[in-house]
Design a protein around this nucleic acid. Structure first.
Lengths: 188, 188
DNA sequence: GTGGTTTTCTAGCATCGCTAGGATTGCTAG
DNA sequence: CTAGCAATCCTAGCGATGCTAGAAAACCAC
């Protein structure tokens, strides 16, 4: 039955190639350029193969990419945990800046995935936990959970507004410093 | 030449009907449901008529709706100016909550419109000015401009993350209170 | 080899945004 | 009143999208 094992291994490999190709293409030309036909061409198979891996179609592929993104973001945040507020804020923005299409898939698109619920994937909770770990020391008497949500919202807002050319490019560093100033101190 | 005047008046009226129909349909069923065919049916004309009003097609119609949205948001913020940080933050979130599709058109979609540039429409600058007016008193020695951008990012992040079901519904009010706590005090 | 299962591809559907070209209407001049 | 011009509008169609049914091919056990 080792052949059967090889077949399932090939299958999962191909599934990963689909997501990898989608991410690559999205990062290069945006998610609009990620069509099922181009994706099928990239992995050198026909269109219906995509649906055997992801019955949900294109949305499911994007959701799979988003999940990968959450795992990578969690890793990036964990690596910056020692940097405190400034470190984690910088890491967050840097991640969104380095992989804009992936970030879009994680937050702007892929509305199926939702936080703050029982069926929320663990990878997604991990991101919140990383932010929470840094905010907790400065929460004081305030509930750290909601404060983390506000902190997270600030980072996410900075990313998305900046991406939409809504913010002044000259003040990027200054904004980051202000975030640290506003969230880095205890306010009981 | 009064007939000519009536004709141009009818034209502009029809243009507004197009945007109004688009907004109504988007608010009811989302922007994906706003197709050029359905839009043409709603105004009881054929598709190409849309392009005589908006050569840019669907994107231009959404941009027109977004501009209306910026004007309405600026008015809502101006009305809440006396409420200070808490008042304007509440008004902002309330606006986004009452007209979610319009808010999406203003920020998530419609990437043509950009802030912080010379050709930025006045209505868009007005929104920033309203936020700036409230932030300025608490800026202290800090530059009020970037601080307003951070404040704005927080509000925008709260709106978008909440819309994506990323935040706990139970803590809505608490988050707003925390925003006021973090941005309502001087931090020189 | 042969039959049956699994996998893959070809072909097509409905819908999308958008546009060219002809038809229809309205205005003007003789 | 009518002929001709100009503006307006609609029918029909193009290319591309996500997705799917049914035929074709490959694979495996016997």
């Amino acid at each position: 039955m080792t052949q059967r094992q090889r077949r399932v291994r090939d299958r999962t490999e191909r599934g990963q190639r689909i997501v990898a190709a989608a991410r690559e293409l999205a990062e290069a030309e945006g998610w609009d350029a990620v069509t099922t036909r181009r994706l099928a061409g990239l992995i050198e198979y026909s269109q219906p193969v995509l649906y055997s891996h992801f019955p949900g179609g294109k949305d499911a592929i994007m959701a799979a990419a988003a999940l990968e993104g959450f795992a990578e973001l969690a890793a990036a945040l964990a690596a910056a945990r020692d940097g405190g507020i400034a470190g984690i804020a910088g890491a967050y923005i840097e991640f969104a800046d380095a992989k804009p299409a992936l970030y879009d898939a994680m937050f702007t698109l892929a509305s199926e995935l939702r936080f703050a619920r029982d069926d929320t994937p663990e990878v997604m909770k991990a991101n919140f936990a990383e932010l929470l770990a840094v905010i907790e020391p400065v929460a004081g008497r305030q509930d750290a959970g909601p404060l983390t949500e506000v902190f997270w919202s600030t980072l996410h807002g900075l990313v998305t507004l900046d991406r939409g050319h809504r913010l002044s490019p000259a003040h990027r560093d200054e904004r980051l410093a202000l975030v640290v100033a506003r969230f880095g101190t205890r306010a009981d």
